[in-house]
């Protein structure tokens, strides 16, 4: 193994130790399937190894990569899947679905909340509010200015507040 490759693997291993478990848990909360969440996180780390030299902020990069895969998954599965997952919450997959992001007060899942927003707000909301990335980190990951991210979050917050109000 080339020494450069070894150095990259060693650096990414540190990131893995710090973030992999949390990333799987975070993704599980969004898609309600631990095995699939594990695959998403694994894929994000495989890509991180490949792109290591161009990555400035590994944690923000990993959550962005995972969030994009989660959105793809939502798109593919559609809303029927969400309904089905709620339906089976009390049966064999209860372990996974119990952690599927349902707010006990509102019974609104993170997915429901995020998907109620226009497409352009979804990634920034996921990254800022749910992955807890700062506005600057979200701006860096999405290639937009901080002003735009703040504006998008402001608009998204107004819409979400209404949605939460209705749900309660």
């Amino acid at each position: 193994m080339a020494s450069g490759e070894a150095a990259v693997e060693s650096a990414v291993r540190e990131v893995y130790d710090a973030h992999f478990g949390r990333l799987v848990g975070w993704t599980t909360q969004l898609i309600g399937d631990r095995d699939l969440a594990h695959d998403v996180a694994t894929d994000a780390f495989v890509k991180l190894l490949t792109h290591w030299h161009s990555v400035q902020d590994p944690r923000a990069w990993l959550y962005t990569a995972a969030a994009n895969q989660v959105r793809d998954h939502w798109r593919k599965r559609g809303r029927e899947a969400s309904a089905y997952e709620k339906f089976v919450a009390g049966s064999a997959r209860a372990v996974d679905v119990a952690d599927s992001g349902l707010d006990p007060a509102t019974r609104l899942s993170v997915r429901d909340a995020v998907e109620s927003l226009p497409e352009r707000f979804r990634l920034v909301v996921l990254l800022h509010y749910f992955a807890d990335l700062s506005v600057a980190q979200v701006a860096a990951q999405t290639g937009k200015s901080e002003g735009t991210i703040k504006r998008d979050l402001h608009d998204a917050r107004k819409q979400l507040a209404q949605r939460l109000e209705v749900t309660r």
Partner: peptide
């Protein structure tokens, strides 16, 4: 609240 429910794997 949703973040607080995230469980490390």
């Amino acid at each position: 609240a949703a973040r607080s429910q995230v469980r490390d794997q």
